[in-house]
């Protein structure tokens, strides 16, 4: 086919989207300059004083920066691990269910919280875990002292991670279930003839069969190691748990938008974006090499 005459139509189709991307994604990149300024919104870019790496220096000297970085990686890492292992075990078990309608119902129910917002889910969790909430009432009935769950640095990261599992485990379960149906049944039949037990079949047929999917999901999640979940933590934390729960994104919000220290907040955001981009590119390359995955 000769597509010469089509070219200009193709450009025309792309035009609106490209313009919007330039305005709302590309031009803000020039705003990164703010990271090297003592930016005052009244003065604008041209008249705000340039201060070189001052913002970054402040960032590295700051007492809190280490704990914020640690909290981010800590929460994100355990979320990644839990959101791989729990759906994996759950999918392998659910796959044993033969009654299709039951299986579909379970699948639909555990998948529902994925589509609800953290605003709503956090609201529900805060209510459940408050001192007068159902959880503490139950503890009291069992003769235990009530616990201030969301005000305790000992509990907060665990609550964040486990409630994230509640919201998201249905999602990966579906991916694993799809991979499980791809394992050919003759393999199981052969194992049966050899007298394999259920555990042996899981160990020697099921797990090797879905290893590519596990590797793929694991590598793709590398890029999320700095995403501890802004929406969730923003809606669940309070000053009492900054020590264990304050993450890069919540810090950027408080410093940048609430306190209007735009330079410092942009510097923090820039560091995060650069690290995240490098990790995503690496993870895509690894996924391409080990799992034959190409997104485009």
């Amino acid at each position: 086919m000769n597509h010469g005459t089509f070219q200009k139509h193709y450009h025309l189709m792309l035009l609106p989207g490209i313009i919007l991307l330039i305005v709302f994604s590309f031009i803000p990149m020039a705003g990164i300059a703010v990271a090297f300024q003592d930016f005052k919104i009244g003065l604008g870019f041209s008249r705000s004083p340039w201060i070189g790496l001052e913002n970054f220096k402040y960032l590295f000297d700051m007492r809190d920066s280490r704990s914020i970085f640690f909290n981010t990686v800590n929460i994100a890492f355990w979320k990644i691990v839990a959101n791989l292992l729990i759906p994996l075990v759950f999918a392998v078990l659910l796959n044993e269910v033969r009654y299709v309608l039951f299986k579909r119902w379970v699948q639909s129910i555990v998948y529902l919280p994925h589509f609800l917002s953290w605003v709503i889910l956090s609201g529900i969790i805060i209510d459940l875990l408050s001192l007068g909430g159902v959880v503490n009432k139950t503890l009291q009935q069992l003769g235990m002292d009530p616990v201030m769950f969301l005000g305790s640095n000992a509990y907060f990261p665990f609550i964040v991670i486990s409630s994230d599992v509640w919201k998201e485990f249905g999602f990966n379960t579906i991916i694993f279930l799809a991979a499980l149906t791809g394992i050919s049944s003759p393999l199981y039949e052969a194992a049966d003839i050899d007298g394999a037990s259920w555990l042996q079949k899981v160990r020697h047929v099921t797990l090797p069969g879905i290893t590519p999917t596990i590797v793929l999901l694991a590598t793709l999640s590398i890029g999320n190691i700095l995403n501890a979940g802004f929406d969730q933590i923003f809606n669940m934390y309070n000053p009492l748990v900054y020590e264990s729960g304050d993450i890069i994104d919540t810090y950027v919000y408080r410093v940048g938008i609430v306190q209007a220290q735009f330079g410092l907040a942009t510097a923090v955001g820039l560091m995060k974006s650069v690290i995240a981009m490098v990790l995503i590119v690496i993870s895509y390359q690894l996924a391409g090499r080990f799992a034959n995955y190409r997104i485009f």
Partner: peptide, 25 residues
């Protein structure tokens, strides 16, 4: 020009300036 556009799109997806520059914009 397909690949040129495609790279632009992917670059926009992978790298974000963060919330503060968007706020200022």
């Amino acid at each position: 020009c397909r690949n040129m556009y495609m790279w632009f799109l992917i670059a926009m997806m992978l790298f974000s300036a963060g919330v503060i520059p968007l706020y200022i914009l």
